[in-house]
Amino acid sequence: MLLLLPPSEGKTPAPDGAAPLDLAALSGSDALTAQRQAVLAALAEVSASDDAHDVLGVGASLAAEVERNTRLHAEPADAAARVYTGVLYAAAGLADLEGTPARRAADSVRILSGLWGAVSPADRIPAYRLSMGVDLPGVGRLATAWRGPLGAALDARAAGDVVVDCRSATYVAAWKPRPGAAEWVTVRVVREVRGKRAVVSHNAKHTRGVLTGHLLRRDAAPSSAGGTRPRSASWTCPRSASELLDAAGELVGTVVGTEVGSGLSYTLRDATLEPARTRTSPATLELLIS
């Protein structure tokens, strides 16, 4: 399994005194370091300019984060699992993983980033402000600029495996599995409205996070009654779209979230797999919540 996540907009700075960024220690360094250096340099220059907020597409309230972009090499760094915050990451609990699930996340999860290209949850990075949708002077449109390096970093890793894609369209544009090389499955969250299934944005990130956490923790889950796990359950990461569907099916009937404010909880009612429509498009794992 290669599980792809978007970064979060919100980021938690590393504690003061933590060691700074070490580019050579990041995953995929052979393929990605040169582009990471180029983007870091361009970002620092832009962030020090008068039109930084316009170029980066951020408001004046984020002035401190933009200013931090000018000195990222010296900023304290922390595991990406703790730097990235937000609904998906809270639901997945990546920062809390230990033992086998943590090792699985380091190997199987890649967080796509406009600055780093792709990092694992264990990679140590500083907090920063840069979206993949930015057209960065000196580099160009980041989704385009990262395609070659990300291909070199991810193509071989994805080959023969299942790619579980929880990214938004902006990040999908930066890298897609080569047609026929891997089973590519995007995750869609829906509700049933007047007898028809409709895509939802509210609760979708949380539900994808719950699925992410489940896929990484499955071998640490309690056994079923009688001391054995169901035959449909696997003790390893899914290696195919059908195994991914089986894994998602293990969550059917369970409460996967509680809405902030109302306190209303919602349950995963069904998990289905819709085949790819074309050779170059992904299959879709559809998760029905209510």
Results as ranks from 00 to 15, higher is better:
190 V>Y: 06
221 A>I: 11
240 S>E: 06
22 D>T: 14
124 R>D: 03
232 S>K: 15
77 A>C: 05
6 P>T: 13
127 A>K: 01
219 D>W: 01
198 A>G: 11
221 A>F: 09
127 A>N: 00
111 I>D: 06
229 R>Q: 14
176 K>P: 00
197 R>L: 15
161 D>P: 03
38 A>W: 10
120 S>M: 08
92 A>E: 04
20 P>E: 02
182 A>C: 09
18 A>T: 11
246 D>M: 09
67 E>D: 14
173 A>D: 10
246 D>W: 08
1 M>Y: 05
102 A>S: 11
73 H>W: 15
68 R>Q: 06
183 E>W: 07
178 R>M: 12
75 E>D: 02
106 A>L: 07
21 L>S: 12
23 L>H: 13
228 T>D: 02
204 A>I: 09
111 I>F: 09
106 A>E: 11
277 R>K: 12
115 L>W: 03
225 A>Y: 07
234 S>R: 11
43 L>G: 01
25 A>D: 12
193 V>N: 07
53 H>Y: 00
46 V>K: 02
133 G>R: 12
239 R>K: 08
148 G>P: 10
287 L>I: 15
134 V>Y: 09
31 A>S: 12
170 T>E: 11
165 D>C: 06
57 G>K: 03
38 A>Q: 14
288 L>H: 11
228 T>Q: 03
214 H>R: 14
254 T>L: 09
18 A>C: 06
77 A>G: 02
84 Y>G: 07
288 L>S: 12
194 R>F: 11
